[in-house]
Amino acid sequence: MSPREMVGRIGFYTLVALATAFFALPMLWLVSTPFDAQPGLALAIPDPTLGNFSELLDNRYALGSLLNSILLAVGTALLVVAFAATAAYSLSRVRIPGRDVLLYLLLLLSSIVTGTAAMVPIFLLMFELGLIDSRVGVVLVLSGGLLPAAIFILKDFMDSVPKSYEESARVFGASSFQILKDVVVPVIRPGLSTISVWTIVNVWGNFLVPFILLRDADKQPAAVLMRTFYTEGGSPNLELISTFSLLFSVPVIVMYLFVNRKYGFRFYGGIKS
């Protein structure tokens, strides 16, 4: 290696290290600041304490909001998986004219339903339905927004299940429910787990929909509660924000690791052979 190449290498790695550090800093801040007695916006060696956690626990909404987030996320995930799986199954098995156009249209519309642009009509709709300040309302709106993309992804998985699997089970006398339970669902399990995790992550981080549709502070999820952590003077309360952020991230990371180990993620269909 010539000296010239050597310098080039060193320069390249230095650049990569700097870029990595740039992106790693917020993460480091997230794991260190909650344990710092004097948290600041800069990354500092913490003055170790668990006081921030006890202060957070004193906030009467903190733990409740995490529970609310779980309720909304799990509720939406159940709804999305159940409806997307059945819809994708029928779309995959029944030939209807214009099916592909329908699918692409759905995908296009999905970004609008939960998008900012549709917030006013959605609010009015929920108001007319009497679903304002109701977790069910939030779950319905979020499900509606996520379903099209979920159907789109799951249809690909359904397409990859050969028809002969089902027919074979039918010849043996299996009912439709048994076929779904014993054959179709196990084969597309990676797809189902991908969709559930994707839904949960989406709901977990969603601020706008619960912020607009929920009135009662006892019902608000963690993403909305975060906004309220200000001191009386109006400046951000870094003790609470950093500590709560950490608690907010942990469940998602744990879930991701668990599901990935147990089922594996895939965004495309196909049988491993």
Partner: peptide, 20 residues
């Protein structure tokens, strides 16, 4: 009669073995 009640067994071209 539905296939399951006909007391027959069918072997498919792709064998249709359940991969899981």
């Amino acid at each position: 009669l539905p296939p399951g009640k006909r007391e027959l067994a069918m072997v498919f071209q792709d064998y249709a073995l359940f991969p899981h």
